Simulated scan of single mutants.
Amino acid sequence: MAAEKILSIADLERTASKILPTASRDFFNSGATNQVTVHENSSAYQKYRILPRVLKDVSQVNTKVSLFDRDLAFPLCVSPVGLQGMAHADGELATSRACAKAGINMGISSYANHSVEQITAAGKEIGPIYHVMQLYSMTDREKEARIVHRAEAAGCKAIFLTADSPVLGVRYNEWRNGFLPPAGLDNPMIEKSSEQIQMMSHDDGFSSFNSDSHSWMREIPWLRSITNMEIWIKGVLTPEDVETAIEYGCDGVIISNHGGRQLDETPATIDVLPACAKAARGRIRIHIDGGIRTGSDIFKALALGAECCWVGRPMLWGLAYNGQKGVELMLDILYQEFKRCMQLAGCKSISEISTSSLGVVRSDGPLARL
């Protein structure tokens, strides 16, 4: 039988889901409680319609966007996702190399199976690449500071502080499966060996180091005092929190609901993006993750106010499918789709993508202009 031809992220998801062991597949693909948010993150994009302008010269289309003082090939980065070693033995090393080859940036999870030093070095072997370090608020401040200092020394440009996880969400699939990462996978950034990880449940392991007493006042001034890296807040869903991030001098926010893995029945990120972008009024950078599965999804997110998009699960599916080459394939699919979407919509540069490029489907009549 001929191998399945991978033409889309949906193809990649189907193929990877067949390859992954059940516990790993469920951990990667599932969300919290009744899976409402994890599914709506993607389906919400479908109510937006692209309004193309025709007879536009798009022969010299430019997909580049600037982030951390360098041009990205297109407005996409790979989210910080933990436990990539469950998808492929090379884990984050393969992802870093693929991102460098594609000309985009990568986030590193505190739950990475390789160290920040190894991950950044792997990407730089291929070409220029910038990384950001995802961080949880921890009860052990000295350990948290060590993560920050190691990330800065390794060349990371920003801290992505995860703000939506005082505790883990209710994840029935993890409890039913008695989920634990496979033996042999360490978490070097939070300084846990495989043996230590195997001694308690994933939920208990998280609560053993994470602080549920986090706050803007506790976290942001402290981070400012120990690092010169940019500080971004990951997990923002409301204009009010955008305003608070601005008040505390943060450099950016990622509109995110943790891929539907924390509080279920929170809104799809694309649906709260316009209000958050309006609140920002250009005073802070606005990025988005959650549910992005096509190049047209990226186009829609930019039209609604995002500067850049981040993807997590598609990277995992690429890793599971074929390691570094699988991640490269995933990124190329999204790049080619996005570029072609821009051309077909009549946009020759990122700056031409705006709310006038979209309409929204109404159940009671004609398409509504934004």
Rank of each mutant, 00 (worst) to 15 (best):
M1P: 11
I6H: 09
S8F: 05
A10H: 14
A16W: 10
A16H: 08
S17I: 12
L20T: 08
R25K: 15
F27E: 02
F28V: 15
F28P: 04
N29F: 15
A32R: 03
A32C: 10
T33C: 15
V38G: 05
N41E: 02
S43Y: 13
A44S: 09
A44L: 05
R49Q: 12
P52A: 05
S59G: 12
T63G: 08
K64Y: 04
L67E: 12
F68V: 06
D69T: 07
D71F: 09
L72T: 02
V81L: 09
M86Y: 01
M86R: 07
A89G: 08
D90Q: 12
D90T: 03
D90I: 00
A94I: 01
T95C: 07
S96W: 02
R97H: 07
A100T: 08
A102E: 13
H114A: 11
V116G: 07
I119M: 09
I119Y: 04
G123R: 04
G123Q: 01
E125I: 10
I126F: 05
G127D: 05
Y130G: 11
M133H: 00
S137N: 01
M138K: 02
T139V: 12
K143E: 14
E144R: 04
A145H: 11
V148C: 02
V148Q: 01
A151T: 01
E152T: 06
A154V: 04
K157G: 08
I159D: 04
F160E: 04
T162I: 06
A163F: 14
A163M: 13
D164N: 08
S165N: 10
L168R: 11
R171P: 09
L180E: 11
P181L: 07
S193W: 03
S194A: 11
S194R: 06
Q196N: 05
Q196V: 00
S201I: 09
H202V: 12
D204V: 10
G205M: 13
S207F: 11
N210H: 14
N210Q: 12
S211P: 00
S213H: 15
S213W: 14
L223G: 06
L223Q: 06
I231F: 08
I233K: 05
L237E: 03
T238A: 02
T238G: 00
T244N: 09
I246M: 07
E247R: 14
G249F: 10
C250P: 01
D251T: 11
G252W: 02
H258F: 03
Q262A: 10
E265R: 15
E265W: 13
T266Q: 08
I270N: 06
V272G: 02
P274S: 10
A275Q: 10
A277N: 00
K278D: 12
R281N: 13
R281T: 07
R285C: 02
G290Y: 07
I292R: 03
F299M: 02
K300L: 06
A301K: 12
L302D: 06
A303N: 01
E307P: 09
C309T: 10
W310Q: 06
V311Y: 07
G312F: 03
G312K: 02
G312A: 10
P314A: 00
W317V: 05
Y321A: 14
Q324N: 10
V327T: 08
E328M: 12
M330N: 14
Y335H: 15
Q336R: 13
K339E: 14
K339G: 11
M342P: 00
A345M: 01
K348Q: 13
S349L: 04
I350N: 03
I350V: 08
T355W: 02
T355K: 13
L358W: 12
L358T: 06
V361K: 13
V361L: 13
G365N: 05
P366C: 10
